[in-house]
Nucleic acid binder design. Structure first.
Length: 201
DNA sequence: TACTCGATCGGA
DNA sequence: CCGATCGAGTAA
């Protein structure tokens, strides 16, 4: 049921598909023996050098170097001199792209999220693996496509009308997941619900 | 080295 | 609406 996602899994798709796929997955922070887990509810995709909203549009620099690595590593940077932003690098090597984790269940806002989970730049370039203290798990939460809202990314007007208008921000409301109905539907199809499993898929 | 400007947030 | 706060990127 709770399956640890391997870094390699984030090398298979581009950032838009990866972003959609991360909705409903669980962000797991392990620090000093304390484990915190939150369902990912809000993400944004940043797609390569052509995407003028993506830091990689500046090319390969000290800061963007991590995005050129194979997916499955964290890209954490400081924004406005105040807030740490958490991204997951996606895609194969030399295709600089990432997914910004903007929100989790109960926490809206990328800055608040990193503060709450004690995430900072010391995790930059670390693997999304339990060893690093920050990884992703699949708890079988199913987010129906109709529940996903695609809207323009936040705070990227500087990227110009074309790239700022891309609807690459994806959100869903976990409260609207009718898990009981899904279970019923599943039972009707001949599956038996497992105790403690939320929307097993 | 000297600028400018943020993938934000909280408080007037 | 505005200030905080600092590092990346750019120009020089």
């Amino acid at each position: 049921m709770a399956r640890v996602m391997a870094p390699e899994e984030f090398r298979e798709t581009g950032p838009v598909a990866a972003a959609r796929g991360l909705l409903g997955k669980v962000l797991v922070r392990t620090l000093r023996g304390r484990r915190t887990e939150r369902v990912i509810t809000e993400v944004e995709a940043y797609d390569g050098e052509r995407d003028l909203a993506c830091h990689a549009s500046k090319g390969r620099t000290k800061r963007t170097e991590v995005m050129y690595r194979p997916g499955g590593v964290w890209y954490v940077y400081l924004c406005y001199g105040v807030h740490e932003m958490l991204n997951l690098v996606t895609g194969p090597a030399d295709c600089p792209a990432a997914v910004l984790i903007r929100g989790v269940a109960g926490i809206a806002g990328p800055g608040r999220l990193t503060k709450a989970l004690a995430i900072d730049r010391s995790l930059n370039a670390a693997a999304a693996h339990p060893d690093s203290g920050l990884h992703v798990e699949d708890h079988g939460v199913v987010v129906p496509r109709r529940r996903v809202r695609a809207t323009p990314r936040i705070g990227v007007d500087y990227a110009g009308p074309v790239w700022a208008a891309k609807k690459w921000r994806f959100t869903f409301d976990p409260a609207k997941l009718p898990e009981s109905k899904q279970r019923v539907r599943r039972v009707a199809r001949g599956f038996s619900p497992r105790p403690g499993t939320q929307n097993a898929g």
